[in-house]
Amino acid sequence: MTFEKPSYIPEFIGLLDAETATEQLTEGLLTGVEKPRSLALDELVQPLPHEERFRARPVRALLDRVMHLCRNEKPTAADEWLAPRLHATLRLTRAEAADPELWSCLALLVAPDYVVWRHGRSGKVDAVRFQGPHYKQAFARLWWAAEMFRDGDDYRPAARICRNQDMLNTALRLDVVDHRPVAQAVAVLLERGVVTTGREVNALCTVVNAAAMTLAYDVIAPDIERDQVAVADWIRYEAVLPGDLVLPTGPAESRAPQESVDTLTELFADLFKDAPVRDREQVDEPEEVTSR
């Protein structure tokens, strides 16, 4: 199932309230039979300040690009490329990014065709891809993955996480990764190939999550304070993305302390050794996890 690009795309991204969004998520839309009623919806969008960073066109261009680049691949492959670039294009504070109404507007008005392209392979898109929690919604999950797993201005760990659907689906929803050294340590283990299969990834996430009940990662592996100036400057600055093959640069925040990341990497690897992973040898292709 595919959609065509909407005939009308608003100039700026705004907020689309949940009730209105929900009404749009009809069986017809989710199965690709109907298109959103863009013009009628646009009237219901609550506008954000008309700042450059809320312009819809750069995001739209990015999505057009990724659908073109991945036209011959599985759409899941697009996440790795898209997540850092979406984050670098759509420059938001965390408070702004926490608003589901922004992501609903993006999904229903700016790029419903992308949502269907990326998440509609089974014939029907799960409604949460249009409107849902940050770890499920089509755009929020990518933006937040980049935000949570970037190491200062370095998007490479985030891209690495997005390469593994299990990691993206499981780790992003856990509160433990809110502590930056935890996120970085998990990314290191993934890079080193300590975990590769979906089961291993899930087992590792469970280990990290369960052990947090007894170990205060904040204390044994402290992070440094957030650099508010760096992030604020970065948000104000207009995004200009490099070419398709070069990762953009994130906010000039300090990276997570190496010592803390090392401590946790070692700890997690050690705890993971004992973790039961069924069929450790079997390599299974990470698949889309259907929700519920």
Binding site: A98, E147, D178, D218, V219, D223
Partner: peptide, 19 residues
């Protein structure tokens, strides 16, 4: 012994701490 104050918010994945 350390005592750590932790401020979290699910919506923003915020985790701000201070000893």
């Amino acid at each position: 012994v350390n005592v750590l104050a932790i401020l979290t918010e699910g919506a923003t994945n915020l985790r701000a701490t201070v000893l």
